[in-house]
Design a protein around this nucleic acid. Sequence first.
DNA 1: TAGTGGTCTAGACCACTTT
DNA 2: AAGTGGTCTAGACCACTAA
Lengths: 245, 245
Amino acid sequence: MPERPEIPIYRQIADQLRAAILAGELRDGDRLPGENTLMREYGIARATARQALAVLINEGLAVARRGSGVYVRLFRPIRRHGSQRLTRWREGEAIWEADTRGRPYVVDAVHVERAEAPADVAAVLGSGQVWVRQRRYSVEERPVQLATSFYPAALAEGTRIAEADSGPGGVYARLRELGKGPSHFTEEIRGRMPMPPESRMLELPAGTPVLVVTRLAYTAEGEAVEFNQMIMDAAAYILQYDFEA
Amino acid sequence: MPERPEIPIYRQIADQLRAAILAGELRDGDRLPGENTLMREYGIARATARQALAVLINEGLAVARRGSGVYVRLFRPIRRHGSQRLTRWREGEAIWEADTRGRPYVVDAVHVERAEAPADVAAVLGSGQVWVRQRRYSVEERPVQLATSFYPAALAEGTRIAEADSGPGGVYARLRELGKGPSHFTEEIRGRMPMPPESRMLELPAGTPVLVVTRLAYTAEGEAVEFNQMIMDAAAYILQYDFEA
DNA sequence: TAGTGGTCTAGACCACTTT
DNA sequence: AAGTGGTCTAGACCACTAA
């Protein structure tokens, strides 16, 4: 086995399995050799076999199903257009429709409340009191995004922005009715591993990072009217931005 | 110890340590309790203590240094602007701490060659033969990005695009001289765990995802002149895009 | 030299899935 | 009932770091 004894056994095994996956010998959903198989085949201890499989699981290339086996992971991303998608809100259509292109989607875990803004949010919105809208998006039964939006309380108070159902056209339509329609946006994107609550809400298998998109929306006058933070299953998304030189 | 026996011991320990990190009790660079400490303190076996620490390491919250200990991880990102036209919208609004000013990039691992294009590249550039430019960027001694650019061979042949040093102003200046200056860009962003070669080149600790940015550059006439794929240490970058409704 | 993390063995019991 | 992954114990030897 130790063709290259300087490389740990569990890494050699992981490398072989990864190569098989990337070469297409093992496809999406295929079953990988399990712990017992690896123990027999390579003459190693249980923990070592687990370690090899853990490498692939932590790379997001495989998922473990208790009582069943370890399987090659699927990747069917949603394409999200950053620069073009927001042009359609004027027509009263929910922004989310643009992303899924007719694929069925579900919004749940909706939670709307008035609260004191975290320091970073307050600094941007210039308002200590905010209305907070939280929700979760799922596509084809699979949760893919958690979103939390903040709006200055002075703006949202008494409007449907402060209700669970924000009405036709969503929050942006309400803002426009207030003469505060968003016209400029900035989006910041970071990548990191999920925290446990995010992992739970998005039902993420080990080895899946999240994309954190923070969007700020401004009126034409430069007033910040929305702070929106989205936590996305990185395996579920491709973000696309178009711009000119 | 088992306040909630349904939660595995190693998770309970990891949760306590994570809470201490997020609460600021343990700061960037601080040493976490090591394996031996956890074994004594919780009366657990070695493997269990390792498992607890592995959770934090895989979340990117900690890094292990052999022979030394496990430490809380630093996060000092670089802010990368995808579209810089709307700079007035970002003054005084940096949400996440980022230090971009005056930090020079060092470029190494430069490799330029003529090759046959991969299928996806060929489909975009409309050219099977391409010149490939690879390089690595580092900031403050730390490698942060790998980049691979493809140019149609018919365009690059005989120009400095096909040389290691592309000359003043870089490749884009050469393209302009050819009357093929890029004027429209699209960038696609994905997040995933790194493959071993990427991990090695970027010297990534376990638990750090990468951001994969694929940029396509088009002339004003709509001709694709560059396919550029960047692999970025996700802990080192914030990507920012500005746009209007 | 003492302590640390990295790798590995050889067991064990459990919950869960599949047959 | 058999097989699977999830958790855990109790050891071992090693390479590396720091005092």
